[in-house]
């Protein structure tokens, strides 16, 4: 038996819009701690990890750990039928092949039940160790979205380098090249407009812009984005979901050809 009641239903809609482009089918895992998802894109280059903690739900009941395979496009179709102020309840019975989304209007005068078929998805679950990152950049999510969008009109890859000066995003393509530098800036009126750089060591990595652009779909969930970089690890682009949890995107860097790679 599973019953999760989320007062701020629009949150779930936004989460889905954020990951739908990257992943088509995914298993949602429910446990006592919360509602989570981990899924890789089809080419195993990017990974999305979502956590909505149990405390964030108005009512959270999950009798045993279980996973539900859903097609995200179909799920999005159903969630699109919910109003932005609606309260969404996710329900599933033990041994059932379906999950039910219940939408209640804020005035309680309309209740809609949408039942969706589940699917069998055998997906690999990756173990992501907690690690120290060489550089962590926190900046306004709208700014990061703008940078990725602008750079992708010039080239396909972005080199992100963090130095004492600031964080530099650069690209080059057939028509030319572009560099955008963001400096540390904490003297702003609103804290969500700050840019903060914590650097242990300078680091520079190359990534495919296509993926970065799809990560920025999560910008509506949070005013700030945190980008964690280490030369030995995939980049982590994290959007905090207020009082609930987070959505994290991992992206494997591009590697220079000479390096010996695994088969």
């Amino acid at each position: 038996m599973l019953e999760l009641r989320l007062v701020q239903g629009s949150l779930l809609k936004k989460v889905l819009e954020a990951i739908r482009e990257l992943v088509t089918d995914a298993n949602f895992d429910c446990s006592g701690t919360g509602f989570s998802l981990q899924a890789m894109d089809s080419s195993h280059v990017a990974l999305v990890a979502l956590l909505l903690r149990a405390e964030g739900f108005e009512h959270y009941r999950c009798d045993r750990n279980l996973s539900m395979g859903m097609n995200l496009n179909n799920m999005a179709k159903m969630l699109r039928c919910a109003g932005n102020d609606d309260i969404i309840t996710i329900k599933a019975d033990d041994g059932s092949d379906t999950v039910t989304f219940m939408f209640e209007s804020p005035k309680q005068d309309k209740i809609a039940d949408f039942e969706m078929k589940l699917m069998d998805i055998d997906s690999e679950h990756l173990g992501i160790p907690d690690s120290e990152y060489q550089a962590i950049v926190r900046m306004p999510s709208a700014e990061f979205m703008r940078i990725c969008k602008d750079l992708s009109s010039i080239g396909d890859t972005v080199i992100i380098s963090v130095t004492k000066e600031g964080v530099k995003f650069s690209t080059s393509g057939e028509i030319g090249s572009a560099n955008i530098v963001c400096r540390q800036n904490q003297t702003v009126d609103k804290p969500e407009e700050a840019t903060v750089i914590e650097m242990q060591e300078p680091v520079s990595l190359t990534f495919a812009l296509r993926y970065m652009n799809s990560f920025t779909k999560a910008s509506s969930l949070s005013d700030q984005v945190t980008i964690s970089l280490s030369s030995e690890l995939p980049v982590v682009v994290e959007y905090k979901i207020a009082e609930m949890g987070y959505i994290r995107f991992y992206l494997a860097p591009k590697i220079e050809e000479d390096e010996e790679m695994k088969p």
């Binding site: 990017a46 679950h125 173990g127 860097p253 050809e257």
Partner: peptide
């Protein structure tokens, strides 16, 4: 330069939650 894969950084683990039926 070639795109890296996530599996070269993170190793697969067994998922703990049981699928719904």
């Amino acid at each position: 330069s070639s795109q890296g894969r996530l599996e070269s950084f993170f190793k697969p683990v067994v998922s703990t939650s049981a699928p719904l039926k």
